[in-house]
Simulated assay, not measured.
Amino acid sequence: MDSNNPQNNAPAVAGAITFPSRSQDVHPAPVQPRQPRNLQGLLRFAMEATKAEDAPGDSTLGPMDEERRKFLEEALKSLTVDIAEVLHTSITTLTDAEKMKSIQLGQPLPEDVQSAFNNLLEYIDDIDVANDFYKMGGFAIFPIAYGSENDEIRALASTVLAEVCQNNPCCQARALECGILNVLLNLVQSERGQALTKCLYAISCASREYSPACRELTAQGGCDTLAELVATPEPAARTKVAFLIRYLCHHYREAKEQFIKLNLVKIIAEQIKKGRDATTEHLLSTLLALVDGPDPVVLAQCRDPSVGLRNILEDLLKHPDLIGERFREERDYCQELLKQVFTDCAQVEPMDDVVADR
């Protein structure tokens, strides 16, 4: 019987990893080399870890000579990045006001300026590095960059700001205190192309999950600006707008009330009516955020015959793309809107009466 097998009575070895073989025998796993603590230990670790792959020969390790030590030190230095130095160098380059001002509209960025932005974006997605960026005076790059006539510089600055602020209340607070959010809210009204998309990205990251910034955005007329940008001809920017509006509607009643007063329903309906594209799904989701409640004014806006939202949704459901499973979520949004807004709504209350009652 198995209980009489002497192998089963063998004492266990502490720390050993065992595994069954095809014959059910149990063998200890190979002992791993000790983790290195210095340069010589690193060399020993590497040689012991690969010893089984080496050709037969003497693998005895002796003392490390000075030449080998210097070689390994240089090799390790070449693989080590001084992030603080990278931040300092990049900030110094991007706060050179004279250099930055000299870069004209449409002109390619000088290599050192492009490298400075690239190096920042390589590391600042780490929250600790982002905070160090601020402490080292990094926010000084923004007024200089946003004052540039070169749209690529402004777009890159917005990308940097978005990365340092995303899910980072410390940098969000600094951006608000420094007035950068207000600069963005003014700048977004005139930006176009990639600069517009990145500016909206920065506004979103500087505001979301940070109540003081969301309140400031609402107080400074940001809802009006966002509502106007729903009709922008640039799909990437329209997606960013829809995403931020949806977030505000779900989390900040004051912002949602502003969008209702602006009759955002009509603006979205007109945009969808122009033709289905990659942003339609996000616009439908935004409509659902508006009708969530439900608010009688919003329902009246949706049911307004002059808007024709019901026909727009029904026509969209007939679109060939929505027949398959690929755009199932978009189809579900349409059906949910029809259900929430138009079920049992034979009697349409005049918009003026609803607003007056409110």
Rank of each mutant, 00 (worst) to 15 (best):
P212F: 01
E98W: 03
A157K: 00
A236L: 08
T89D: 15
R238N: 02
A55W: 05
E122L: 15
I17Y: 00
S90R: 10
I268A: 03
D128H: 11
P33T: 02
D25P: 00
L290Q: 03
P36V: 04
R22D: 06
Q166P: 02
R276D: 01
E336Q: 12
G41F: 00
E163Q: 14
E228M: 09
Q35I: 07
L61F: 15
A75K: 04
I144N: 08
V31C: 11
G147D: 01
Q271S: 02
L226I: 03
D332E: 14
A227F: 04
A242Q: 00
L72D: 04
R253K: 10
H27S: 08
A219N: 10
P6C: 06
A173M: 11
I153Y: 01
A255Q: 00
T280M: 02
Q189V: 14
Q107V: 08
A130L: 05
R276S: 07
L262K: 06
T89S: 15
M136Q: 14
Y146H: 12
E66A: 15
Y333V: 09
G41D: 04
S115K: 15
L120C: 14
R253T: 11
R44P: 00
E163C: 13
K256S: 06
Q335E: 15
S21E: 04
F259S: 10
T232R: 00
Q104T: 11
H282E: 09
E53F: 10
D224A: 14
Y123L: 01
S78Y: 05
N131Q: 15
D58P: 07
E329G: 11
L288V: 09
V160W: 01
Y210Q: 02
L322D: 06
F71T: 13
I312H: 05
I153W: 02
E74D: 15
Q258L: 07
A55I: 08
L299H: 12
D277R: 00
D332N: 13
E314A: 14
D277P: 03
F139L: 08
R154H: 02
A140R: 05
N119W: 04
I323L: 14
K318F: 04
P63F: 07
L288N: 09
L317S: 08
Q166Y: 10
G179C: 00
S90L: 12
G62H: 09
A12F: 11
D304E: 03
A242D: 00
Q271P: 00
P169Y: 02
P30H: 01
L94I: 14
P6M: 06
L105A: 13
F327R: 10
Q35P: 07
S211M: 15
S211W: 04
T92D: 15
Q258V: 06
T343F: 13
V241M: 01
D357I: 14
A16C: 15
G147C: 03
C345D: 13
P305E: 01
G147P: 01
A300W: 03
L287Q: 04
V188N: 00
Q335T: 11
L200T: 13
A175I: 07
R174D: 13
K70G: 14
I260F: 04
I260W: 05
E336A: 13
G57S: 02
L156Y: 12
I91G: 09
S102M: 08
G308Y: 01
E53W: 06
I124C: 11
L217P: 05
C165W: 04
E66L: 13
L283Y: 00
Q24H: 08
A227N: 12
L217Q: 03
D353R: 13
R246W: 04
T279C: 10
Q301R: 05
Q104F: 09
P212I: 05
